[in-house]
Design a protein around this nucleic acid. Structure first.
Length: 256
DNA sequence: ATGGTAGTTCAACTA
């Protein structure tokens, strides 16, 4: 099995011990991280190598930052959209063993109608264009990460409360389905899943304990790969650990 | 309608 995972770690500096413990237990072949929140010179490459992983990364001070750790060496790394000069480090592309990997930290959007929301939609339109061109060259593509979009009401603990809000608004959902229409499958929904399955819970108001969450972290694959997907699940366990990330990891298994 | 928490950085921003 080829196992792929994504996790918004919310500071790799703080979460590194948890990440290493989780990798040790789950042994994914590819591991995509978001919100590393550190410049490249601080990336803990030695710790990943000691754990048996190579890594590629695109980070910055304080905010954002993405990285991919992989068992096999990665090549053809890209960290920019071709036609969008964005100072925020939110994407990294690499190829490993004939599979194209795209790791994404989609902007949060803050509030519908805000400047950050416009930036999010703009960013997503560039993602769509980039995805189409990458997709055309790679029949085996996995796009994963923190999309900051709950695609449907079943991905929301309280759809009425969240209706029209950022992460759930119709324009964001339309952008998400446009990404799927470019030739990708939401691996999580290939399988029957427990109701109220979420990947993110706000730190506030005991959201995790009450399971008031959203499913905003996704693993999307081209149909060729999705047809070989044997499982996709959210691992809630690390969200219950002491000093957790606000996100849980998502894992998919492929029989190649 | 507000507040609740966490991370980075040090008063305020982002989520």
């Amino acid at each position: 099995m080829f196992r792929v995972a994504t996790w918004n770690v919310n500071s790799l500096r703080v979460r590194l011990p948890q990440v290493l413990a989780w990798l040790q237990a789950e042994q994914p072949d590819v591991f995509a991280m978001q919100e590393t929140k550190m410049p490249d010179e601080d990336f803990p490459l030695r710790e990943f190598r000691d754990a048996g992983y190579e890594a590629v990364f695109s980070g910055q001070k304080t905010y954002n930052g993405v990285a991919i750790a992989g068992r096999a060496p990665m090549a053809n790394v890209l960290t920019e959209f071709p036609e969008f000069d964005d100072p925020q480090r939110r994407l990294i592309f690499a190829e490993a063993g004939g599979i194209a990997l795209l790791n994404l930290y989609v902007p949060n959007g803050s509030e519908v109608g805000s400047e950050k929301y416009s930036y999010k939609l703009h960013w997503l339109s560039h993602l769509h264009d980039f995805l189409r061109s990458v997709r055309a060259r790679n029949p085996r593509l996995i796009a994963m990460g923190d999309f900051n979009i709950a695609p449907a009401d079943e991905d929301v603990h309280d759809p009425r409360k969240w209706e029209g809000q950022v992460l759930c608004s119709a324009p964001e959902r339309a952008q998400f389905f446009k990404l799927l229409a470019a030739g990708l499958v939401d691996c999580f929904r290939v399988f029957e899943q427990a109701p109220q399955s979420f990947s993110w819970w706000d730190y506030r108001a005991a959201s995790f304990r009450r399971n008031r969450g959203l499913r905003i972290d996704h693993i999307l694959a081209t149909p060729e790969l999705a047809a070989r997907c044997r499982a996709c699940r959210i691992d809630r366990a690390p969200r219950a650990w002491k000093r957790p990330s606000d996100h849980a990891p998502v894992i998919a298994e492929f029989e190649l």
